[in-house]
Write a protein that binds this DNA or RNA. Sequence first.
DNA 1: AAACATATGTAACTAGTGTTACATAGCAAC
DNA 2: GTTGCTATGTAACACTAGTTACATATGTTT
Lengths: 210, 210
Amino acid sequence: MEELLIKTYGEIFEEELLAEIIQVAKVVEFKDGDIMIDYNQYIKTMPLLLSGAIKVMREDYDGGELLLYYLERGDTCAMSMTCCLGRKQSEIRAIGEISGVILMIPVHKMSEWMGKYKSWMTFVFDSYNSRFNELLNAVDTIAFMNMNDRVLNYLFEKSKIENSTIIYKTHHDIAKELNTSRVVVSRLLKALEKDGRIKLYRNSIEILLK
Amino acid sequence: MEELLIKTYGEIFEEELLAEIIQVAKVVEFKDGDIMIDYNQYIKTMPLLLSGAIKVMREDYDGGELLLYYLERGDTCAMSMTCCLGRKQSEIRAIGEISGVILMIPVHKMSEWMGKYKSWMTFVFDSYNSRFNELLNAVDTIAFMNMNDRVLNYLFEKSKIENSTIIYKTHHDIAKELNTSRVVVSRLLKALEKDGRIKLYRNSIEILLK
DNA sequence: AAACATATGTAACTAGTGTTACATAGCAAC
DNA sequence: GTTGCTATGTAACACTAGTTACATATGTTT
């Protein structure tokens, strides 16, 4: 675990901060599908992602869902930070996408370090900034792209975090994350296959780079 | 100006911080339509909004635009904060919506105060949180609402910041902010008028509360 | 192998939104 | 008043996306 911490955050945090993190952080493993944060939940610790990936979703009042962005190694959850500091409830749901490990930092440390370590403050601000920009990207996607491009974009994003050209998702899964229907996704995927851009299998999709 | 500062921020900032703000801040008046921040622009000061309103827009690569949210008295621009701290370029455009006054805080003060005044840090984090939640609302609107509800929602939001049931916007203006076409807006507005929910005039729309 | 559950393919239709084209209305300058 | 600009109204059509319904395929359980 310590090697992973240093590999991930060694460049940006000071020695003493790393030492403190090792002292106070609780190591938590998570699996694909685990609901790590849910709507209206109060959050009392801040997570640092050491490995794996987490998807951040937004839900409609009547059940519609939408994938906002993924968190990867070295990321943290903006919602958690504000929830910790402001005692607010979560506005999003975070679900394990690729199993991995997080470090849980207690709230009081999180604010204590803010004054104590410049690198920590920079990290927190950078994280906010990254999340904000990712949300802006999500806005771009749904506001300016048609469903065909959104499906393609989804495949590329997913391929990137999996680091593989084969994606293990059903059409139904994809439809849920894009807030559309399975039939629409099947239709568009079929057209993409006819175009020679992807290849369809049961439970998986291969992206053809050409 | 000082009364306005105290009226707006007197409750949340300490005396000394207020005094410092008065010393270093530059007072800038803006008018309806002024472009205050534009895409790819570097920002070297952080604005505190004392009066008026600013709309924050996102633009597509091929000209499409979308209103994200409004900033009002007591708000600040999240993009400016991160741009200041991280020397990043702006991802959004900020345009005056209701003429007013802002205070411009130099970057170095902004980070200096972060360690010096707890209230400042709280303010900065709260601002981030508010902007993040407003972006989430924007996502909800475009992802889960149909155009009819988005138009209605637009009218209510605009009515709120104007503090009036009469909205001075053309159909073309509204279409641009919702990233749709003028014809669509006219059609939907007409239907809303037939339903008795609004009344249409040249250059303005009245919301009927019933 | 039979039964079952899940995933995918596809047709036919509907609804919502965007586009084109043109008509009319309101207002201002001359 | 006439001219001209801008705003609004509306019809007709095109296209995308969502829905319903059913067929077929694949894999699992018994």
